[in-house]
């Protein structure tokens, strides 16, 4: 490992030993940008994005999003099965799942609102309240933990100036603890919105935050 002052953080294997670029590892050629809506129904319609800018009152399931929803729906034998993808879609648009959102999704799928609430609260990825532009999820489970995840978490909290679960004053960051993110070989793993940052150590944290704010400034 190098002691270079700027260590490009955020992707596995970034130890200076490999000739793979970040894009190669991340599959950025495939995953770097949002694909246009309405590609094949099996795929591009159904996976969620975590957008930086969200509108909690964005219209749901209208226009192209309605198309996306209908494609999702066509892949399942029951309307209920489209619930998780529909909630994913709603969260992509609105950033979190508010009671109103649950209600709208429920009436769209013909389910009871209480049922949708029960399902939405079961899964941790649905934000039940608004989060910052960047949702920073630090894995503190065992593989990361034995390699110092607690310090990484503490560093994130320190550098964003927030308490666990709270959103920073500028609305940019929410830091939460996450369970295993399935990148145990590259501890500590941090998921920021949809992106994985791997091999993160406490001293990388300022760099990561800087990179995020730079991205935000660049638009």
């Amino acid at each position: 490992m190098s002691d270079a002052p700027f260590r490009n953080p955020g992707w596995a294997g970034n130890t200076g030993e490999f000739d793979l670029s970040e894009d190669d590892v991340r599959g950025a050629a495939y995953a770097g940008e949002r694909p246009p809506e309405g590609r094949h129904p099996s795929t591009s319609a159904s996976y969620p994005f975590m957008l930086v800018e969200r509108d909690p009152y964005a219209p749901l399931f209208e226009g192209r999003h309605k198309e996306r929803y209908e494609k999702i729906r066509s892949r399942y034998p029951t309307a209920m099965a489209a619930l998780l993808p529909a909630l994913n879609l709603a969260q992509e648009l609105r950033g979190h799942i508010s009671p109103e959102t649950m209600d709208e999704v429920a009436s769209l799928l013909g389910l009871s609102s209480a049922y949708v609430r029960g399902v939405a609260t079961f899964y941790t990825m649905y934000n039940k309240r608004p989060v910052g532009r960047f949702l920073i999820q630090v894995c503190t489970n065992i593989s990361c933990n034995i390699c110092g995840a607690d310090e990484v978490l503490a560093a994130f909290l320190e550098h964003t100036g927030t308490e666990l679960g709270d959103t920073s004053d500028d609305g940019n960051f929410t830091v939460v603890e996450a369970e295993c993110l399935a990148a145990c070989g590259f501890p500590t793993c941090v998921q920021i919105n949809e992106r994985y940052f791997e091999d993160v150590s406490a001293r990388d944290v300022p760099n990561i935050l800087k990179r995020l704010t730079d991205e935000l400034a660049a638009g």
């Binding site: 389910l111 009871s112 209480a114 049922y115 609430r117 029960g118 609260t121 079961f122």
Partner: peptide, 10 residues
């Protein structure tokens, strides 16, 4: 048949 109750959280 009135799904007003649910288990919330886990």
């Amino acid at each position: 048949r009135d799904g007003r109750l649910t288990v919330v959280e886990r």
